Simulated scan of single mutants.
Amino acid sequence: MKTALLFGSSGLVGGHLLNQLIKDTNYSKIKLFVRSDAEISDPKVDIIKTDFNSLENHKEDIKGDDCFFCIGTTKHNSPDKDDYRRVELEIPKEVAQIAKSNLVNSFIFVSALYANPKSSGEYIRFKGQVEEELKELNFPKLAILRPSFLIGDRKEKRVSEMIGIFVFKLLSPLLLGPLKKMKPIHSETVAKAMIRTANENLEKNIFESNEIDELVLN
């Protein structure tokens, strides 16, 4: 029986991931790292109120078998450039470094479509830089998932994303070959794929959006 470390349980993917981890018999304990008190009561869940500006103080907590990281933000929610950079770049890198030092076996990271450390866009560049850091840390098992537009019930409505999902749903039949990875994907599918990558020995560690879908269907 394993211990899961979960960062980002309040998000679209993280919410589904938490529910699935609770049901998954591979896990006897789930450490939930949250900024504020979480409204959940389950014997498997250990809620750890976390100061993300002082993660070293939680080094003893960041111990377990599989670390699932799906924290993210938007420019709207983090208008301050330094805060945005910290959430998207510094926090995932720091969590991964601590997890590695504590001999956590696997790190499962939700990245982004077209993640690239040399991109001119901050969001894509930060995701790409985190990916590079994760590769250098040499976890025994690493999975990087790059979902396209996420389908699901968000607590907040993102108009631009809703328009994007609508447009790409219409275009989905035309998205073939290398364009398949642009098709919208359900957040629950991403969560299921994260658990599968942590519990199976797969031949690769980077999964584009269409490959995430295939992981769950196979």
Rank of each mutant, 00 (worst) to 15 (best):
D51Q: 08
D83Y: 00
T74S: 14
S28N: 06
K23Q: 15
L89N: 03
S41I: 01
E56D: 15
K23V: 11
K23A: 14
N57M: 01
N57K: 12
T25W: 02
L21I: 13
E94H: 02
S78Y: 00
K93V: 10
L18R: 03
K81Y: 11
D83G: 05
D80A: 13
Y27E: 03
I48D: 06
L21Y: 06
E60F: 11
P92M: 00
I98Y: 03
I48K: 05
L18H: 03
I91H: 05
F33S: 11
K81A: 15
Q20M: 11
C67F: 07
L89H: 10
D82S: 13
I91V: 10
A38V: 01
T25V: 09
D61R: 06
S78A: 14
L32Y: 05
C70I: 10
G64L: 03
A38W: 02
D65W: 01
D80N: 15
K23E: 14
I30N: 09
T50R: 05
D61N: 13
R85E: 10
S54R: 05
S54A: 14
K29H: 10
Y84S: 02
E56P: 07
D24L: 03
G64K: 01
I30Y: 01
I71V: 15
A96C: 07
Q20I: 09
F33M: 11
D61K: 06
K44S: 06
D24Y: 01
N19C: 05
P92F: 03
E60W: 08
E88K: 04
L89T: 02
Q20F: 07
K31I: 12
P79I: 06
K23H: 07
N53P: 15
I71M: 15
D46N: 15
E88G: 03
T50K: 07
I91F: 09
N19G: 14
A38D: 01
G64Y: 00
Y84I: 11
A99F: 04
L18V: 13
E88P: 02
T74M: 06
G64V: 09
N57I: 04
S28H: 00
D66G: 02
K63P: 05
N53L: 15
L18E: 04
L32S: 06
I22H: 05
T74H: 00
T25H: 12
R86E: 12
I98S: 08
S28E: 07
R35F: 04
D80P: 07
E88N: 06
